[in-house]
């Protein structure tokens, strides 16, 4: 299942990735001391607290039925001192966030808190005006070449799917591999079918998006992103536009993806999903990160009053 196994083009070494792909083994291959000494305690308190906990207690911090897979100590995304304005409106204020390879992060918060904007800054759909965003070792600036380089490695799933309606499901999935990665058509189609099977809709390959249900469309959108074999996946409220009965089929795919060791950032209100797979839950309000913690701590014992209020409103 791990899509990282058969990537012929990936040559970068990925320390800790082996451990990240085996969710059942807690704490193997972790280096808490290293991370605690990272120096960015302000930016990642969750890291600090996890680091100070005795080794082997990961299930306790996970809190769900499954223990979150331990992340590696390779940094996937580093955001420091990021500010953004929409016109005069200061939408993001001093965002600091470090995401390690294999980590799954859930970002929640009231609407207008800037959570979508944060992840849209990671693949430069929005540009930040101050601070630094470094993805996969590449700093995002005005340099178009670098932006495309980052976008090739970062997949994104949108609230409204944004499938290309004039192309079939299969063509949606092969478009970028063929035109961006320059794969031969047959190879791109083989990869696409593999991912369509993984999201459990290979039989819809020849249909157009308009003929599918919302849940099916969102699963195609996930497959389309995966076809680029990204190292990081961003989810922007992937289940918010779905009928209740379709949410589960999409979440199942996302859980499956999380268990394969993919680095994921999800903006979502699905707190069950957060408990089940997240390493860290981040709460945002008013353009700031208010609190971040492993899910168990976050849900059972939130530190800030604002977080407590938010949780009381969404958890019934």
């Amino acid at each position: 299942m791990a899509e990282t196994d058969d990537k012929p083009k990936r040559t970068r070494s990925r320390p800790g990735a082996g451990a990240a792909r085996k969710p059942a083994k807690p704490a193997a291959g972790r280096a808490p001391a290293k991370r605690a000494a990272d120096g960015r305690t302000g930016s990642s308190p969750a890291r600090a607290s996890a680091g100070s906990a005795p080794a082997g207690t990961v299930p306790a911090t996970g809190g769900g039925a499954r223990a979150p897979a331990p992340a590696s100590d390779e940094i996937a995304i580093e955001i420091s001192g990021m500010h953004k304005w929409f016109g005069d409106f200061h939408v993001l204020k001093d965002i600091n966030l470090t995401v390690y390879r294999g980590e799954r992060i859930v970002i929640c918060g009231p609407s207008g808190s800037g959570k979508s904007t944060v992840i849209r800054c990671i693949n430069r759909l929005e540009e930040h005006q101050r601070g630094h965003v470094i993805v996969d070792g590449i700093e995002l600036t005005d340099n178009l070449k670098r932006i495309d380089q980052v976008r090739r490695e970062v997949g994104m799933v949108f609230q409204h799917f944004n499938l290309f309606p004039h192309l079939t499901v299969l063509e949606n999935c092969t478009l970028a591999p063929i035109w961006v990665r320059r794969l031969p058509k047959a190879e791109a189609e083989a990869i696409a079918m593999r991912y369509l099977e993984r999201v459990k809709i290979p039989e819809q390959a020849q249909k157009y998006p308009g003929q599918l249900s919302g849940g099916q469309q969102q699963r195609v959108a996930i497959a389309r992103s995966l076809c680029m074999e990204p190292r990081i996946m961003l989810f922007d409220e992937p289940t918010s536009a779905l009928d209740p009965e379709m949410i589960k089929e999409v979440l199942d795919v996302m859980v499956d993806l999380a268990e394969s060791g993919m680095t994921m950032l999800c903006v979502t209100h699905e707190m069950g999903f957060a408990r089940q797979v997240a390493n860290r839950v981040i709460f945002m309000d008013g353009g700031q990160i208010i609190e971040q913690a492993p899910p168990a701590q976050f849900f059972e014992n939130p530190k800030s009053e604002r977080t407590r209020l938010f949780l009381s409103q969404i958890l019934h």
Binding site: R151, M156, N162, V180
Partner: peptide
């Protein structure tokens, strides 16, 4: 969303125009 989806897949301006936006 169509522009954003094309961009997020790494398609350049001309490719996203030619393959995604203009056909529609």
């Amino acid at each position: 969303g169509q522009y954003e989806a094309a961009n997020s897949l790494g398609l350049s301006y001309w490719k996203s125009m030619r393959l995604v936006i203009l056909p529609q």
